[in-house]
Amino acid sequence: MAQITISCSIPVDDEVVTEFLHKYVLCSRVGAARKLRMGEKGCFYTCSLYQEDHAKVSRLIRRMLAFFESKDILLTILKIGAQDSWDEVDPEQRDPWKFSPQALLALLDAAPNGNA
């Protein structure tokens, strides 16, 4: 199934955002702050979609998208296919893998075989 990764599009230094990641993504405050300050290269969430935990993952992703939108923080979302590897993604040229938040929401609503 599809795999995604999420990071902030620009470096972020915000205690509220750091606390959000600590609480919902379950990373340390120091680790969350470090990843946020890295901007696009500081991936703070990676997952595969349509696994047995899809409902839980979908709720978390929706919560993240809403939170970052409420803070006016743009996200960089990358998507690769199930057979692809993150090693194939050029860190300097991410555009072919970028995915919009709206497209991610549509993907979360879709069934794994492509049917809604």
Score class of each variant (00 low, 15 high):
residue 9 S to V: 01
residue 44 F to K: 10
residue 12 V to C: 03
residue 115 N to I: 08
residue 38 M to R: 14
residue 79 K to P: 00
residue 97 W to I: 04
residue 112 P to H: 07
residue 40 E to C: 06
residue 2 A to H: 02
residue 87 D to L: 13
residue 49 L to H: 06
residue 64 M to P: 02
residue 12 V to L: 05
residue 6 I to F: 09
residue 40 E to G: 11
residue 66 A to W: 05
residue 53 D to M: 12
residue 93 Q to S: 04
residue 75 L to I: 01
residue 43 C to S: 10
residue 39 G to N: 09
residue 27 C to L: 08
residue 111 A to L: 00
residue 11 P to A: 02
residue 107 L to D: 01
residue 92 E to P: 01
residue 76 T to S: 12
residue 92 E to T: 04
residue 10 I to R: 15
residue 57 V to K: 14
residue 81 G to P: 02
residue 91 P to Q: 01
residue 72 D to F: 04
residue 30 V to F: 01
residue 34 R to Y: 01
residue 64 M to S: 03
residue 59 R to N: 08
residue 39 G to S: 06
residue 14 D to F: 06
residue 39 G to R: 13
residue 71 K to P: 03
residue 9 S to W: 07
residue 112 P to A: 11
residue 17 V to I: 12
residue 37 R to E: 10
residue 44 F to H: 03
residue 78 L to N: 03
residue 70 S to D: 15
residue 80 I to M: 10
residue 98 K to P: 02
residue 85 S to C: 13
residue 2 A to I: 05
residue 14 D to W: 07
residue 92 E to M: 05
residue 95 D to P: 01
residue 74 L to S: 15
residue 50 Y to T: 09
residue 60 L to Q: 05
residue 91 P to S: 01
residue 69 E to F: 02
residue 18 T to I: 08
residue 116 A to T: 07
residue 42 G to K: 03
residue 42 G to I: 04
residue 67 F to M: 07
residue 88 E to C: 06
residue 102 Q to L: 03
residue 28 S to R: 01
residue 33 A to P: 02
residue 96 P to N: 07
residue 61 I to V: 15
residue 99 F to P: 01
residue 87 D to K: 11
